[in-house]
C-alpha cells in the first residue's frame, strides 16, 4: 500500500505523515509513506487545501491533520 502526504512540507504535513505511519503500523499494514511537495503534482490530485492524505491514489482527506484513529478508519474503509 502506498500512502501519500500532499503538502509543502509544513509542520502539519509532518504530523499527518506520522499519524498515517502509526495507523498503518497499528493495523499491521506495510505501507510506504511518500511525501509529495511539488505544487503541480499536488494540484494533479485536485487538492486545494493541504495537507492531504492519499491512499492508493485516492484522496481521502484535505486540509486537516487526521488523528491516528481517523487514518485507521480510512485504512479500514479501503
Amino acid at each position: 500500500m502506498i500512502i501519500k502526504i500532499l503538502g509543502s512540507g509544513c509542520k502539519k504535513c509532518i504530523a499527518l505523515g506520522e499519524n498515517a505511519k502509526a495507523a498503518a503500523d497499528a493495523a499491521g499494514i506495510s505501507a510506504e509513506i511518500v511525501k509529495v511537495t511539488d505544487f503541480a503534482q499536488i494540484a494533479a490530485y485536485g487538492v486545494m487545501s493541504t495537507p492531504a492524505l492519499v491512499i492508493d491514489e485516492k484522496v481521502v482527506s484535505a486540509g486537516k491533520v487526521l488523528s491516528v484513529s481517523e487514518v485507521a478508519e480510512q485504512l479500514a474503509a479501503i
Binding site: S8, C10, F39, I42, A43, G46, V47, M48, S49, T50
Partner: peptide
Amino acid sequence: SCSSIPLFIGFTS
C-alpha cells in the same frame, strides 16, 4: 500565502 497556488489551480481548473 503558502496555499495560494493550490487554490489558484483548484479555482481555475
